[in-house]
Amino acid sequence: MKKKDHLTEELCWQEESEHFLSVKDLVVEYTAAGEVIHAVNGVSFDLERGETLGLVGETGAGKTTIAKSILRILPDPPAKVRSGEILLNGVDLYKISERDMRKVRGEKISMIFQDPMTALNPVMTVGDQIAEAIQLHHSDYSAKEVTLRACEMLEKVGIPASRYSDYPHQFSGGMKQRVVIAMSLACNPLLILADEPTTALDVTIQAQVLDMMKALREEQNTSMILITHDLGVVAETCDRVAVVYAGQIIELGSKEEIFDDPRHPYTLGLFGSLPTLTGDETRLHPIDGMPPNPADLPEGCAFHPRCGKACESCRMRDQAPELVHIGGTHYVRCLDEGVKEREA
């Protein structure tokens, strides 16, 4: 008991460490049928209190794997974290025991999963599911207090407490996602990992949920990593953006830097692929080809087979580009000098 409390204090102590969360050089592989799938290949980023970072990328880019490795919930095997450090307030989450990690999950870091239909237990009332999370982290609460707090959480996400004893199938998709959010916020986590929290929802419901999440986060100064493929959602919710391609961050910067001045050919391609609500474009400009097979990544820059700017050196094995600082808080991973130069 003593030891746990000690850890909890340590994790709350903010002045100690440089950043609230630091991910350093994370490498994750999956082994399936004798093949090694390189899901995450050296991802590093920092996150501060109250900040929201958007992880943007296509299916299979490694976004969800990054989030799951922060929470240490990757199934091993087949997944294996090869190297890297994840520091929460200076504590390396890969050096603490599973017992301590259980304390971190839910209480310090919690996750909102994409599909509210499968994230909830169908044979347990929604109220009890929220209460379960509270009970696990607050063994000192009485049963009454736990129920009270669960009701409070339901009300907070806009569901009347009278529906405490209803089952998930009695709720609509939007409301189920609210329940999932209530669950993940029940213990006032410091960090939320939101994996496509609104992708399964209709736009008007998405607007409700995003608004609500924003209000709740501001209330508690919670940090968030938002995983999405929807650039519109990123523009509305994030402070900083990391564009992920083939398990690497290929561009990182503040929302303004990425949206006003995207540099990497892939980021530009993503913007070119989007039909806009105001433009008069008659044709879209998609990125050629398909995302690479993570079991067989191209040598050199992983994006070169689809890149219009690729030259000889982009294809060389030993020339793989590094994430380079190009001013402000803007980083880009590209060999092309023109991409990195700042306009006068």
Partner: peptide
């Protein structure tokens, strides 16, 4: 229409939340 998240970060839409 107002609920669509816009990639235009400088002129945020006024949302009509239903």
């Amino acid at each position: 229409l107002s609920a669509i998240p816009s990639i235009d970060i400088h002129s945020p839409m006024k949302r009509i939340i239903l």
